[in-house]
Design a protein around this nucleic acid. Structure first.
Length: 103
DNA sequence: CCCGTGACATCGG
DNA sequence: TCCGATGCCACGG
């Protein structure tokens, strides 16, 4: 099965455990293209593959919240992450504690 | 095949 | 530290 890039992103995103987050760059790298971080977000924004995809667990490379088109946008995203016990450091996420290991 | 798009990443001033 | 510009790449038309 030669999954398309977006298919890999779709599966990986669904596998993110609760309370953890992942960066677009890392997600892209897991899919096979470290440079395609933009594509990851692009797919989410244009076509939320399924309501099962926790796209709110995907954040910027430095843990800053970017994107999100649903609800109040970034605000909603932050609120959901806080409910997942994700540790925040100011206006960003503490990646040292909440970054998904994917192992 | 070419072009436009964009929820990123990185660098320079 | 903050802001702007550039590069990168997959997808759809």
């Amino acid at each position: 099965m030669e999954s398309s890039f977006k298919e890999k992103i779709y599966k990986l995103t669904k596998q993110i455990p609760k309370g953890k987050v992942v960066t677009y760059a890392q997600l892209a790298r897991l899919a096979g293209n470290p440079k395609a971080a933009r594509v990851v977000g692009l797919l989410m924004r244009n076509n939320l593959y399924a309501p099962q995809v926790p796209c709110h667990r995907v954040v910027g490379a430095d843990g800053s919240l970017v994107g999100y088109s649903a609800g109040k946008g970034i605000i909603t995203k932050i609120e959901m992450l806080k409910k997942e016990r994700v540790k925040f450091k100011g206006n960003k996420i503490n990646l040292s504690l909440s970054l998904w290991d994917n192992k």
